[in-house]
């Protein structure tokens, strides 16, 4: 990715409200062609961060660059390449879905008339395009909000909780759409609490807690890099006691009758040998692949902050 500007680059971004630091020294990038999940518990600072990226909340310190341009230092022309959906969809309820898109088309300028029809088809609202938004369901409003974000054919999409209110089919459609957009070379940043969707949709994940970065990496790195093994043995309690007696096994634990532990050498074969010699031959031994949800909960419950 060298030589190419990041679609979105945050450098030491901070925002304080009085004594409280909502966002604290946050740095990460989103590159063209990737979908990045932006995760954190409620109040972690996700929406404040997104608002700072979109010239809606002024940072106390740090920098936001969109395609190389400083959003706060050089005005906001680079934001014209951005489509956004922040929290609830920003729609005018007294207008129809089509007129909402038409309003934004006129405001932005330079977008062909055909874009409105194409966007309605993309988000599956063609049939109800002429109805007032006040009559739309939550999911339909969400689709329209997504349509408003997509209308200008943006190079960077920033979506805050885009799956809210969508039915399962809608969620699958959105996942496919985002993957397609990334495949076309666009960058996508999604903030979401639906971790299963993030795991299936995103290439990389950025996790923050209390305004600070706690982990970032590819989804594969996050879920597979635990170094733990799940071992099924005839006497789990006995095996657990044996392992805990070792200097490397203090963190071993039982989970649903299975012993979850590290290996002294990091290799599963060595762990199997050790247990066999100790009289607990494994009936099953697999690398303990965590769900993203486990990683998320573990990281956001920790007090410490890693880089």
């Amino acid at each position: 990715m060298s030589g190419q500007a990041a679609a979105l680059e945050l450098t030491s971004l901070s925002r304080s409200y009085g004594d409280r630091r909502a966002v604290d020294d946050l740095s990460f990038s989103v590159w063209p062609g990737e979908v990045v999940g932006f995760l954190g518990p409620n109040g972690a600072g996700k929406t404040t961060t997104i608002r700072m990226c979109l010239h809606l909340v002024k940072p106390t310190a740090g920098e936001v660059r969109v395609f190389g341009q400083d959003v706060w230092g050089q005005g906001s022309p680079s934001l014209r390449r951005v489509g956004c959906l922040i929290e609830s969809p920003a729609t005018l309820p007294f207008l129809s879905g089509r007129d909402n898109l038409e309003f934004l088309r006129l405001a932005r300028g330079g977008i062909g008339r055909g874009a409105v029809g194409r966007t309605l088809a993309t988000v599956g609202l063609s049939d109800r395009a002429g109805d007032r938004v006040a009559t739309y369901s939550l999911g339909m409003r969400q689709r329209l909000g997504l349509g408003l974000a997509l209308l200008a054919d943006p190079d960077l999409l920033i979506l805050d909780e885009p799956a809210t209110g969508l039915d399962p089919a809608g969620i699958v459609e959105m996942r496919d759409l985002l993957r397609r957009l990334a495949a076309e070379g666009r960058a996508v940043l999604i903030s979401s609490h639906v971790l299963r969707e993030v795991e299936e949709t995103c290439d990389r994940v950025v996790i923050i807690n209390r305004g600070r970065l706690v982990r970032q990496g590819t989804v594969h790195e996050l879920v597979a890099g635990t170094g733990l093994f799940a071992v099924r043995v005839a006497d789990p309690a006995g095996a657990l006691a044996t392992i805990r007696g070792q200097d490397w096994g203090g963190a071993a634990r039982l989970r649903d009758g299975v012993v979850v532990t590290r290996s002294r050498t990091g290799r599963g074969g060595d762990l199997a040998d050790f247990l066999s010699r100790a009289g607990h031959p494994p009936e099953m031994l697999v690398e303990d692949r965590q769900e993203l949800e486990d990683v998320f909960l573990e990281l956001t419950h920790e007090e410490g902050v890693q880089r």
């Binding site: 809606l56 014209r80 956004c84």
Partner: peptide
């Protein structure tokens, strides 16, 4: 009132 300011300012309108 309807939040469209997010859409407009966030999209680059001053």
């Amino acid at each position: 009132h309807y939040g469209t300011v997010r859409l407009l300012v966030g999209g680059g309108a001053g």
